[in-house]
Amino acid sequence: MVKVLLWGSLRAHTDGQAEVELEAKSFKEVLDKLAEAYPGLRPQIERGVSMAIDGRIYREAWFTEIRPDSEVVVMPYMTGG
């Protein structure tokens, strides 16, 4: 199991939980399991999210490995100028 931290406004779709636990070993598995467990998150996931894994931010990296002790933070999709 891995702990996944969500940004605050997503709590509206996770029964108020800022952090959820999932069985996931990769970036994509986290998103798939989140959308499955919390369907209210699916629109945001489909629009795009980034994910910080152990402090490093990934935008689209399905196969990035996640260890059980990894710090996983779902973030808005990064943009820049």
């Binding site: 940004w7 490093r56 933070v73 973030m75």
Partner: peptide, 15 residues
């Protein structure tokens, strides 16, 4: 100041 190990205001811990 935020530094290595700080839990950032947006979630991840800084490297």
């Amino acid at each position: 100041a935020a530094k290595k190990g700080t839990k950032s205001s947006y979630g991840p811990t800084f490297d």
